[in-house]
Design a protein around this nucleic acid. Structure first.
Lengths: 185, 185
DNA sequence: GCTCGCAATTTACTTGGAGTAGATTTTTTT
DNA sequence: AAAAAAATCTACTCCAAGTAAATTGCGAGC
């Protein structure tokens, strides 16, 4: 029902869509944040599957990474209303924190292990995972609203940023300096 | 008033805080989203100043970049209630889009120019800026809630990710493969 | 110096969505 | 077949955003 109705679906709508009255809906699922929580798990599973399937076919690490990013975007795009509904929590709320934690969980273990291999503090994996969750969330949200720029270009650009960083572009002699960076809120 | 009361400040609270009644508040500022919009501009200015001041003292590009990231986090930390209030828009709303656009604006021109210098399509600058806005927003939000882990570690980790990317860590032989990545929503 | 009319302000309302209590129906048990 | 127990539905409360209508205060005319 949410898939049809979009992120503005109200609890009455959802109850009606399920041919059920509100108290029953509430007895079944708890409250709205529990519903969002449950749906976010399901969406994350879906994304995981898409990501894993996509990256499995690649041969080199970078290719796999790019495929993973593409898998994420494709999965979200295929279920955009669910994505928007699940992302209806504002940053700063508990619900947001839980969502980010859940999304980051599997990345954290990967990064943690990888960082150990190159003698980096494994604790930094949390920040990395958060950053990537945020980057993907915002990029995808903005892209969805801009209604369908080129998906391939998006995937390429984001992959490049996350894989190689800004250094190769900004660090080069003669280029713009990082001092001009003015990231906002 | 918002600074004291936090992101849950209601319009009644704000009006009361300003020793004014609600209709006056509304006649003055329009509506809540206009208030958020105005405050976001002011916060972004504040962050810009902090970022620029910080990065100006660095000598090499990477140092400047790290200083910029630190400037961002420090500015947000110094005004965390305003940050949370301004970030009370859920992803997917128009308000969120405007905020991201505003935050990304100054980065886009820098990246666009830098990308031209290294023969990359300048259009990709938008995606890069979005990604960085998202990464910083989420990282900082999560960090604020976790109440004061080590700021230096956070800045180091995030800078490294955005500057050098995951490649050096994940790409190395014997390390974990990107195929294990399962980013969530 | 008083009153009438206009402008600013304030109180008290409407709206809309989340969540729930109490009336009602249905089912089960004796 | 009747009464009790369980499920369901109607109709409510609550809270925050936003607004309309009542009120107060203030300046111009007599």
């Amino acid at each position: 029902m949410i898939r049809a109705q979009g992120p503005d679906a109200t609890m009455d709508d959802i109850a009606a869509g399920a041919s059920v009255t509100k108290p029953i809906l509430y007895r079944t699922i708890g409250d709205k944040s529990a519903l969002v929580s449950a749906l976010s798990e399901s969406l994350i599973d879906q994304i995981d599957r898409s990501v894993n399937t996509a990256s499995r076919s690649a041969t080199d690490p970078l290719g796999a990474f790019e495929a993973a990013i593409r898998g994420y975007v494709v999965a979200v795009d295929a279920d955009r209303n669910l994505f928007l509904f699940v992302n209806s929590a504002a940053p700063g709320t508990d619900q947001f924190r839980r969502l980010v934690d859940r999304s980051a969980a599997s990345m954290i273990s990967v990064f943690s292990a990888a960082r150990k291999n190159v003698d980096l503090d494994p604790d930094g994996a949390r920040a990395w995972a958060w950053a990537i969750v945020g980057a993907l969330q915002v990029v995808t949200t903005m892209w969805l609203r801009d209604d369908e720029r080129d998906l391939d270009a998006l995937v390429r650009d984001v992959s490049q940023l996350l894989w190689s960083g800004l250094g190769p572009t900004l660090g080069g002699r003669g280029g713009a300096s990082a001092r001009d960076l003015t990231p906002g809120a």
